Simulated assay, not measured.
Amino acid sequence: MRAGNRTLVERSEAPDPRWGEVDGYIRDKLLGDDAILTATLAANAAGGLPDIDVSPAQGRMLHLLARMARARRILEIGTLGGYSTIELARALPDGGSLVTLELDPHHVAVARENIAQAGLMERVEVLVGPAAATLAMLDGPFDFVFIDADKPSNVTYLREALRLTRPGATIVVDNVVREGKLLDDASDDPRVTGTRALFDAVAAEPRLTATVVQTVGVKKWDGFLLAVVTG
Rank of each mutant, 00 (worst) to 15 (best):
V172I: 05
Q214D: 15
G140D: 11
A131W: 09
V212Q: 03
T156K: 11
A35M: 12
V176P: 07
T7R: 10
L138G: 13
G20W: 05
A45P: 03
G168M: 09
S153V: 04
N5V: 10
L164I: 08
D28Y: 05
V176I: 06
V145Y: 02
V213L: 15
T79R: 04
L226P: 07
E125F: 00
D222N: 09
M137L: 08
G20C: 03
R178W: 01
A89T: 08
W221I: 10
R163T: 08
E205T: 11
L49N: 12
H63Q: 10
A109R: 14
P206G: 07
P93R: 13
K151G: 10
D188W: 02
A203F: 03
E113V: 12
G217W: 10
N175R: 04
G4D: 12
F142W: 01
V218L: 13
F199A: 11
L127M: 10
V145L: 02
D184C: 04
L75K: 01
R18S: 11
D200A: 15
T193L: 13
E205S: 11
L98P: 15
L88F: 07
G81M: 00
A43C: 00
V172F: 01
R27E: 15
I86K: 02
V126W: 00
A210T: 10
P105M: 01
I86W: 01
V202R: 03
G223D: 11
A132I: 12
I26Y: 10
H106C: 03
L64R: 02
L158K: 11
V228W: 03
V22A: 12
V176E: 08
A89D: 11
D200P: 09
Y157K: 10
I171W: 07
K219I: 00
S187G: 00
L225R: 09
V22Y: 13
R67C: 09
